[in-house]
Write a protein that binds this DNA or RNA. Structure first.
Length: 431
RNA sequence: UCCGGAAUGGCUCAGCGGUAGAGCGGGUGGCUGUUAACCACUAAGUCGGGGGUUCGAAUCCCUCUUCCGGAGCCA
């Protein structure tokens, strides 16, 4: 008999069908057994009623354990008690494997235990919902880019040097060539791609060896970098805004039940799909100081400042025109003020913090070289990057989105570690 | 790296100086509609390691280990 997915059950009412999956939960009540079957696409209650079944079939249903894998046959029906839900009246139970005692119980567990059992934890409904949202966010980002003339251009993961030179990198021995590093960003390589393809993006894992211990950091995470020729600062932010707003709409549209499982405030999420706020770094500091922050001009925002900035704003906030000292060397100087650069951060509302970092890039060879020398960078290692400013330099801009940060915000969850199948953190590499 | 906090049955926790407890999970039995089902019975613990104080330590002190939360860095 042909397998039907739980998500398609409504099209098979009254038919005898076959469902293949796992036992999420089981309850008995004398002559009745309720099996909650999960098949990846959804869950459905399946009912075994003793008088309708052979003794052996009923006993097999009764002896099932949590997470046993099985094939159930039966008639698809409307749920007897709940509206708009369905159930399966079981006629056959074919057990593929009777699972041993399942480590993850029905009551709550601590994060350490769950992370040590991450390979099993991903089966639980909240984790299922988050992983489906991750999938949807990923495709919404790619959809926007593909529809706006960006071409995928994969940056290398093994690199000979530190891209931005700021954060600590993981290193390894690369044959006879000395040390190689795991990329912390594909951005510099991406800048080469625009001279060939015009607009490009990459989407892959990046690595930061910082000993960060917060709910917003992973040592391995997925980043999408986009880069576009002939795009300047304002248009760069416009692209970021359009992209994020498409992600919000897509998640609301495609992941309604997942958001319900996570008890996500959908009203707040919907409210973020409106024109974003734009503030200069200077205005941001003034605003935060007026609200009581101790922050001073010229400094970067702390976690508390980020939360304070958006507590009265339903939409994300761009912070633009930053002091050059606290931003990367490749950012273009602000023509209005040589002490500033045309960089922007995007801060998500509801306290979720920074999700994007972007900037217009310095396109003048001599200014870029001077800046690199001032930061004592090894110029020879970056000759290829400087070459881009010698052979047909153009104004260009780009930005990077942390996929897990965005998924954390969309899902409305507390900790970034639940947004990736296997989180890598300072004290965790297993499983 | 710095500042806090925690470690007690398989899991989540209570107990905080005087004979180790509960809920869940496990086992056995009961129940025709259950929704982390329920009811009864049952097994299960060198109270993270080491040292100290005390007549007596899971409980107080020191130390180590592991983990959690936060800061800095950033996506």
């Amino acid at each position: 008999m042909k397998q039907v997915f739980v998500k398609d059950i409504a099209q098979h009412l009254g038919e005898e069908i076959c469902l293949k999956g796992w036992v999420r939960n089981i309850r008995h009540s004398g002559k009745l057994v309720f099996i909650i079957l999960r098949d990846g696409t959804g869950e459905i209650q399946s009912v075994a009623f003793k008088p309708d079944l052979e003794e052996e079939t009923f006993e097999r249903a009764k002896r099932l354990t949590l997470e046993s894998s099985l094939i159930l046959t039966g008639i698809a029906k409307p749920h007897q008690k709940l509206e708009n839900q369905f159930e399966l009246a079981i006629s056959g139970v074919d057990v593929f494997q009777l699972a041993e005692e399942y480590p993850i119980g029905k009551k709550e567990h601590g994060p350490d235990f769950l992370l040590s059992n991450r390979h099993l934890w991903i089966r639980s409904s909240k984790q299922w919902a988050i992983l489906r949202i991750r999938h949807t966010v990923y495709y919404a980002i790619c959809e926007y880019l593909n529809n706006n003339s960006f071409f995928r251009f994969d940056s290398p993961i093994l690199t000979p040097n530190a891209c931005e030179g700021t954060t600590t990198l993981f290193d390894l021995e690369y044959f006879d060539e000395g040390k190689a590093y795991l990329s912390q960003s594909g951005q510099l390589y991406l800048e080469t791609g625009i001279m060939s393809l015009g607009r490009v993006y990459d989407f892959g894992p990046v690595f930061r060896a910082e000993r960060s211990k917060t709910r917003k950091h992973l040592t391995e995470f997925w980043m999408m970098d986009a880069e576009a020729a002939w795009v300047e600062h304002d248009e760069n932010m416009q692209i970021q805004e359009e992209l994020i707003r498409l992600v919000i709409r897509t998640v609301l549209d495609k992941c309604d039940s997942e958001l319900d499982i996570l008890e996500r405030d959908k009203v707040a999420l919907r409210a973020a799909d409106a024109p974003f706020k734009r503030m200069t770094h200077y205005e941001t500091i003034e605003y935060l100081r007026a609200k009581g922050s101790e922050i001073t001009h010229g400094s970067d925002l702390g976690a508390q400042d980020e939360a304070m900035l958006t507590e009265d704003s339903p939409v994300p906030v761009f912070i633009e025109r930053w002091p050059k000292e606290i931003k990367a060397f490749y950012m273009k100087r602000d023509p209005l003020d040589p002490n500033l650069v045309l960089g922007n951060d995007l801060i998500a509302p509801e306290g979720f913090g920074e999700i994007i970092g972007g900037s217009q890039r310095e396109d003048d060879h001599d200014l870029l070289l001077a800046r690199m020398e001032a930061e004592k960078m090894p110029i020879a290692d970056y000759q290829w990057f400087l070459d881009l400013r010698k052979y047909g330099s153009v104004p260009h801009s780009g930005f990077g989105i942390g996929l897990e940060r965005l998924v954390t915000w969309m899902s409305g969850i507390h900790h970034i570690r639940e947004t990736i199948p296997f989180p890598r953190m300072i004290y965790r590499i297993y499983p």
